[in-house]
Design a protein around this nucleic acid. Sequence first.
DNA 1: TCATTCAGGTGTATTTTTTACACTTTTTGC
DNA 2: GCAAAAAGTGTAAAAAATACACCTGAATGA
Lengths: 222, 222
Amino acid sequence: MTFCYDYARPAVTTDIAVFTIQDQRLAVLLIQRGGEPFAGHWALPGGFVEADETLEACALRELAEETGIQGVWLEQLYTFGNPERDPRDRVISVAYFALVPMASLNPRAGSDAQDARWFFIDDLPELAFDHRDILDLAQHRLRAKLDYSTVAFSFMNETFTLGELQTVYEIVRGETLDKRNFRKFVKSLNLVEDAGATRRNGTHKPARLYRLIQPGHLHYIR
Amino acid sequence: MTFCYDYARPAVTTDIAVFTIQDQRLAVLLIQRGGEPFAGHWALPGGFVEADETLEACALRELAEETGIQGVWLEQLYTFGNPERDPRDRVISVAYFALVPMASLNPRAGSDAQDARWFFIDDLPELAFDHRDILDLAQHRLRAKLDYSTVAFSFMNETFTLGELQTVYEIVRGETLDKRNFRKFVKSLNLVEDAGATRRNGTHKPARLYRLIQPGHLHYIR
DNA sequence: TCATTCAGGTGTATTTTTTACACTTTTTGC
DNA sequence: GCAAAAAGTGTAAAAAATACACCTGAATGA
């Protein structure tokens, strides 16, 4: 079956940059492409928008199909429409980004991709298409959003220590923070509560565990 | 001539929300639609992306064709892709927004539109498609950007008084500001210089004129 | 068992930034 | 020449951000 139109139409895809924290470093989920173009190259998960789905539904579906990751929070990042960005055809891509808790999800390769795995953001392979540009913009946006929202909490597991949360801020911002000032900041948000338990992490004092009062809510601060 | 593909493809358009300040109010440029759907309704200028142009080039071209406005600074706002947003066909729209100097541009209707004119943002007619949603988001973004960038300067003519600039901030933010604090803020940016002239505006002391040191540059502050 | 190690946990003083606030100046119109 | 109206100017108080040092509790191994 073919679909015919009076004017040329671009293909429309979504691509998704999923971030997490692994081994104290920022990591992103990539798939290895099975088919042309860029066969064998690593790329962001994503694919073509179907006739009756929203853009966000497309991103969620492709993410699930290609990596097994489900039910994440997505934010639209930017739409990339350079006519040369796909060598074969005119393809416009609506890019999304997502944050998932530290190491909570084990990606598995889906039907459309040979492989799916996490890469450290500062140690990336060569990427297909303009996906490097998309990732750079996503990382930039993530950093900016840290300052005026509670995105960073999306990296946390259900319960977490303030030390872990501080580490996330330090990794994304690329600088160390003062412990006392950071804890003052977190407590002033009034968004976390004592989970009533502690966690032993090594040969030292156990840390108090906290949880979000409204899990899944993104708040704007400042 | 027809164009045929193996899978259904959405049509892709750009829509542009152009803001200005008129009579101490925020205004937006709309066109009156000539053809179906929504014939006779007012809508944002915009149109279909052609095979070999970037999204931004499409927005600039449509803006020029439909309203005669040229060479404005554009920022990508959001991509609207709800399958139901156009009653006839699947249309994905990449929305842009722009700010032009106060009353500097007299829109003229282009070939594709019956009419083009400015509307006050708080006195809009019923709009075609989901253009009201696009405008709401654009206004929200404009307000947010005022806090961390120098977008507001895009509303100014080549030379302007600090009173005019303050009025722009007050209109977009919807609140009055302290004159001395505002002037301190503007001078601390180090982005404007004395234009060496004054302007008489009414039956009172003439105001000193300023100009941007780097016209056309958008700065991020804070 | 006791000394060492290591991240967890806590408060205050200083600096910087933001806010609040009132009067004089210069022009026009009557 | 006087009334009207926006232009222009500085300082003090409040709030926010920053800098900074020591004790705690558990594990380890001498």
